[in-house]
C-alpha cells in the first residue's frame, strides 16, 4: 500500500499532519496522531522498527521532561507535593505531558515516513520538483554510505589492534586510540571522495537543466489533488491558530 504512493504524497501528508498537530496544540490531538501513526506503522509492516527507534529517542526525552517540569515549574500554582526547592505542580505535569505527547507525535509521524519511503523513489520525485540534483545525491549517498563507513571504521580498528593498539583506562590513552582510528578513516574517505568527484564530473554531474531518471515514480491526479488539499488544510490550521492568538492582547 505505502510503496504505491508517490513519496511526495506521503511527505506532504506527514508535514501537513505535523503542522496541524502543532497548531491544534491539544494533548488529545497529539495522542490521536501518535496513536494513528503507530497503527499505520502496524498496517504497513514497519511497526517494530518505528517503535524501537521512537522508543530510543523518546524514552530519555520523556524522563527529562517529567523531571524538569514535574519537579521545577515556578509558574505552577496547584502544588501537589513539595520538598525543599522541588515542588510537584499540576501545571508542570500537564505541561510535560502536553509537550511529551506533541513530540511523540512528531517523532512517530516522521519515522513512519522515513521508514516506509524508498529512497531512490524519493530522490526521483525530488528531481521532478526541480530541487538541485546535488540534494538528491547527498541524501541517497549518505543513507547508503552510513553502513559502509561504519564497516570501514571497524576494519581500521581491527588493523590498529593487530598492530598493538590497546585501549587503556586513562583519558590520554583513549584520546590516542580515537586518533589512531579517526585519522586513517578520514584520510581514506577524503581520498575516495576525490576519486568519486572526478568520475561524477566526467559524467556531467554539474550540468543544469532537465535530467532523465531510471526510476519511474507513480503519480496520479488523485494524489496531486490530495497534496494540494493537505497543504491548504495545513495553511488553514496555521491561519486559525494565528487568528485565535491575535485578540489575546498581543500574545503570540
Amino acid at each position: 500500500m505505502a510503496p504505491r504512493l508517490n513519496p511526495l504524497t506521503t511527505l506532504t501528508a506527514a508535514a501537513a499532519v505535523l503542522v496541524i498537530t502543532t497548531a491544534a496544540s491539544s494533548w488529545a490531538v497529539s495522542l490521536t496522531v501518535a496513536g494513528g501513526a503507530a497503527l499505520l506503522a502496524g498496517v504497513t509492516g514497519t511497526a517494530r522498527r518505528v517503535l524501537l527507534a521512537a522508543g530510543v529517542i523518546l524514552a530519555p526525552f520523556w524522563l527529562s521532561l517529567l523531571l524538569m517540569h514535574g519537579l521545577f515549574f515556578p509558574e505552577g500554582r496547584t502544588v501537589l507535593a513539595s520538598w525543599g526547592p522541588a515542588r510537584i505542580t499540576a501545571e508542570g505535569l500537564g505541561f510535560a505531558v502536553d509537550m511529551g505527547l506533541r513530540t511523540s507525535a512528531f517523532v512517530l509521524v516522521l519515522l513512519l515516513f522515513s521508514f516506509s519511503v524508498r529512497v531512490p523513489e524519493l530522490v526521483a520525485a525530488l528531481a521532478v520538483l526541480r530541487l538541485p540534483p546535488q540534494f538528491g545525491y547527498v541524501l541517497a549517498s549518505t543513507l547508503m554510505l552510513a553502513p559502509i563507513i561504519a564497516a570501514r571504521l571497524e576494519k581500521v580498528r581491527q588493523a590498529q589492534e593487530s598492530r598493538g593498539l590497546v585501549v587503556g583506562k586513562g583519558i590520554g590513552n583513549r584520546l590516542g586510540a580515537a586518533r589512531l582510528q579517526m585519522v586513517p578513516l578520514v584520510l581514506g574517505l577524503v581520498h575516495d571522495a576525490g576519486i568519486r568527484a572526478q568520475a561524477l564530473d566526467a559524467r556531467g554531474f554539474r550540468r543544469t537543466g532537465p535530467r532523465t531518471t531510471y526510476t519511474q515514480v507513480r503519480d496520479s491526479r488523485a494524489q496531486r489533488g490530495f497534496r494540494i488539499l493537505a497543504v491548504l488544510l495545513a495553511v488553514a490550521a496555521v491561519a486559525v491558530r494565528i487568528a485565535a492568538s491575535l485578540p489575546g492582547g498581543g500574545q503570540a
Binding site: P132, T142, V186, V190, A193
Partner: peptide
C-alpha cells in the same frame, strides 16, 4: 537550494562523508 549548485563536485561528494562522520565520530 541556493548554495548546493554553486559548490564544486569535489565538495559535494565530501558532504555525505561529512554527514556520516558527524554521526560515526560522535558515536566513537
Amino acid at each position: 537550494v541556493g548554495v548546493l549548485p554553486t559548490l564544486p563536485t569535489s565538495t559535494v561528494v565530501l558532504i555525505p562523508v561529512a554527514l556520516v562522520l558527524n554521526i560515526v565520530l560522535g558515536q566513537l
